[in-house]
């Protein structure tokens, strides 16, 4: 399969080609690629794409994946509606 047809980040519709171009342009950390492309910033919070992105960085930079720092995980763990936050706890729909 072509790099341009292979999806790395489903939430933000980023292909392997997109990600590889960024790494080749010098954005070689997860945090930089996340900020410049929104990779991992979607509703899945990077759960799907993060490992794939680390793998691409490792492949292109020759680094050991274990040495590539993971992205900063930010709350909430799962998307939560503003309306739910306003309503407060104890209730279920």
């Amino acid at each position: 399969m072509e790099d341009r047809d292979t999806i790395i980040c489903r939430c933000e519709d980023l292909t392997r080609e997109d990600v590889r171009k960024l790494i080749e342009a010098g954005y070689t950390t997860v945090e930089e690629i996340k900020r410049i492309s929104r990779c991992g910033m979607g509703p899945c919070q990077g759960r799907t794409c993060h490992q794939l992105l680390v793998r691409e960085i490792a492949l292109l930079t020759g680094k050991d994946p274990a040495e590539i720092p993971p992205h900063k995980a930010r709350p909430p763990i799962k998307g939560i509606k503003l309306g739910t936050l306003l309503a407060g706890g104890e209730k279920h729909d």
Binding site: G42, Q45, R74, P76, K81
Partner: peptide, 11 residues
């Protein structure tokens, strides 16, 4: 209407 939007991240 923003009540319907899901917060995905805070920092």
């Amino acid at each position: 209407p923003l009540a319907q939007l899901r917060v995905v991240r805070q920092w």
